[in-house]
Computed example of a mutant assay.
Amino acid sequence: MGGPTGGTSAWESPQTASGGGCGDACGCGGDEGAYELDPLTCGLDPDLAALLVAAGLDPVQVEDIAHLAVEEDLDQGVDVTTVATVPEDAVATGDFTAREAGTVAGLRIAEAVLSIVCTDEFAVERHVEDGDRVEAGTTLLSVTTRTRDLLTGERSALNILCRLSGIATATRAWADVLEGTKAKVRDTRKTTPGLRALEKFAVRCGGGVNHRMSLSDAALIKDNHVVAAGGIAEAFTAVRAEFPGVPIEVEVDRIDQIPPILAEGADLILLDNFTPEQTREAVELVAGRAILESSGRLTLDNARAYADTGVDFLAVGALTHSSPILDIGLDLREDHGQGPQGAADDAAREDR
């Protein structure tokens, strides 16, 4: 079984749930003092919340995202198609099924979305786990609940599940290419606003590791910081003086910039747009005195060439900003389709 578990290095963001309180849309109503609640006691089913925490996600944040997704889809109204075609007391079982091969991520988040919509309790049968590789036709998750609720929450749940599974699938392709080397594929902060924690979780599901989660986790001195500070050494010294306990990464685009950075004590050096040959030269020059990360020019076709130089990380922003979705659908089982429900079955397959 695959999964987003494992240890972290000093340059891999911690896989623990962050703190935080309930937003206005939270299931607890956002009462005063809610920020002091344990995340496991707020809104979501405790067992589901515990699974999210174990995956390194904050249940409160997941619940808020679920509310936003559903509320955006309903726009203060109702699902007019479903209300018109499905009897209020109808119950159905729906199967979330992969329509193409890939790596799954976001199943528990999809459950959280459905839990926001479902007015009655619902039964869930989990067939695979986040991080698992699946083939086309694999049933991922089966849910039995009121048909109206299932169809109303379908698209919101699928939007997140398909998006995160697409990221995990793309990451897995990179991880497979790098297998057998010490290099790991790593994400960037090029994430969808509001979904960073979920998208970085998907990277972990695909076998990648996370760079910093925010601007406060670590310093990354890039060309504009160097210009503003008056030089690389000046920028490094300023960060070290202001935030002595923060790891510092420095971006370079030439070999000759590396020795002075090493002398300053940089923890990590980002090799920007280096060729594999230049990267190998940098690895030999640094000789283990700093962690090295390649960025720019990277493709699946040349990833192995970079990894074979001995570099530690390959930074790939495309994991989160350009990965296509993994096609996943929800189909109601035929044995639940009677009368008006038959039309609901057809609507479910349209996935609109």
Rank of each mutant, 00 (worst) to 15 (best):
R99L: 14
L161T: 01
T152Y: 09
A84R: 13
H127W: 03
H321D: 02
G29H: 05
E281Q: 15
T82E: 12
T320A: 05
G7H: 11
T279R: 11
R172G: 03
G317I: 08
T279A: 15
Q278V: 10
I328C: 08
T191K: 01
V124L: 06
S216E: 11
D73N: 14
T171D: 07
D256N: 09
L44C: 04
G77K: 04
E154V: 05
Q278E: 15
E129A: 10
R163T: 08
T169R: 01
D64G: 07
G180M: 09
E264S: 13
R333C: 09
A233Q: 13
P4N: 12
A343S: 15
D95P: 00
A197S: 12
G3P: 01
R99Y: 04
S9Y: 03
L114Y: 06
T192V: 05
A348Q: 08
E129D: 08
R280V: 01
T320G: 03
E281V: 12
L271R: 13
R148E: 12
I328Q: 03
V286L: 11
G339W: 10
A136Q: 01
A307E: 07
G329L: 09
A112W: 03
G33T: 03
L51I: 05
A54R: 11
H321C: 00
V53D: 00
A54I: 02
G19K: 01
Q76F: 14
K184D: 00
A10Q: 05
V283D: 05
Y35W: 12
R254G: 00
W11A: 00
D95T: 11
T171H: 08
D73T: 12
R280P: 00
L271E: 11
P340F: 09
A54S: 11
A10T: 05
G27K: 11
F201P: 00
R148K: 12
V117G: 03
G208H: 10
G33A: 01
G194D: 07
T181C: 08
P39K: 00
A218E: 10
P276V: 13
R99A: 05
A66F: 02
L178W: 06
G296P: 12
I258F: 13
A202Q: 04
G6I: 10
L48S: 04
V227R: 13
Q278Y: 09
G30K: 03
V78Y: 14
G231T: 10
G2D: 06
L195N: 04
L300N: 06
L330C: 09
G342F: 08
H127R: 13
K222M: 09
E111W: 01
D267L: 04
S13P: 00
D267N: 12
H321N: 10
G230A: 06
L198K: 02
G342E: 12
G6Q: 10
A55H: 07
I258Q: 14
E234P: 00
R297I: 11
P14W: 08
G7N: 08
L314Q: 10
V143I: 15
A157N: 04
D45Y: 01
G30Q: 05
D132E: 13
A92W: 07
A315M: 14
Y35T: 02
L198R: 02
E72T: 14
G2T: 12
D327V: 05
V91L: 10
L52Q: 01
C26R: 02
V91G: 04
A69G: 03
W174V: 07
P244Q: 03
L150V: 10
R212T: 08
H127Q: 09
A238L: 11
I258G: 13
P247F: 07
R99N: 06
G21Y: 02
N224R: 08
A112H: 02
G231Y: 09
D256S: 14
